[in-house]
Nucleic acid binder design. Structure first.
Length: 181
DNA sequence: ACGATGATGAAC
DNA sequence: TTCATCATCGTA
């Protein structure tokens, strides 16, 4: 009787511990993971291709550079929660909170699959501020999965973050992480 | 190049 | 209560 090898690929929801690390570690690690959304009856998964890290009160590009405010409070909370805000009165932007409680940091999702642009991502996935402060768990309808894919080291490129020219030297830090085309 | 469009935080 | 600003996008 012949034996057979099986390879089983698991789709595992990222645990909170994944996010409880410095944002500059979490951000590149999110590339190659999947943003999964249940929206009007269907479940869809999108490869995360483009993210940016926002790191603490000293980072002048980070909303928490103004300290604790009603809006930034969620960034001071536990890792693994969504921070969704409206920009320019028009576009929702989605971030995942990272790191220790009381240390405000988050990763913005700038692109998934062929969808390029943080406002386009939220529009395509039906994400708005109803998700703000909710956890990245299947029960909220928006979570992140490891689907078993590995990246080679040269798959990731870094560059300065977009749209934060007001942040002086912080604007130049290479805290945008993308999968190469 | 520019207008849309409303929340946010700070000043008064 | 007013004001400037804003982690953007579509159209021109």
């Amino acid at each position: 009787m012949m034996g057979f090898w099986y390879i089983v690929r698991m789709n595992t929801e990222l645990p909170q511990s994944f996010f409880q690390r410095p944002v500059l570690e979490v951000a590149p690690d999110l590339l190659g993971k999947y943003l999964v959304r249940t929206h009007d009856g269907a479940e869809k998964a999108y490869l995360i291709t483009d993210v940016e890290a926002y790191d603490g009160e000293t980072d002048l590009a980070c909303h928490a550079s103004k300290g604790r405010t009603p809006r930034t409070e969620v960034m001071y909370g536990e890792a693994g929660y969504w921070y969704v805000y409206l920009i320019y009165g028009l576009h929702n932007i989605v971030n995942i909170v990272t790191g220790d409680t009381d240390y405000p940091a988050a990763v913005m999702v700038r692109g998934v699959g062929a969808i390029d642009g943080p406002g386009r991502v939220t529009k395509a996935l039906g994400i708005n501020r109803d998700l703000n402060t909710l956890p990245a768990k299947k029960e909220t309808g928006l979570w992140i999965e490891d689907r078993g894919y590995m990246l080679t080291k040269d798959a990731v490129v870094t560059s300065p973050r977009i749209g934060v020219d007001y942040a002086g030297e912080w604007a130049q830090k290479p805290w945008r992480f993308q999968l190469v085309d």
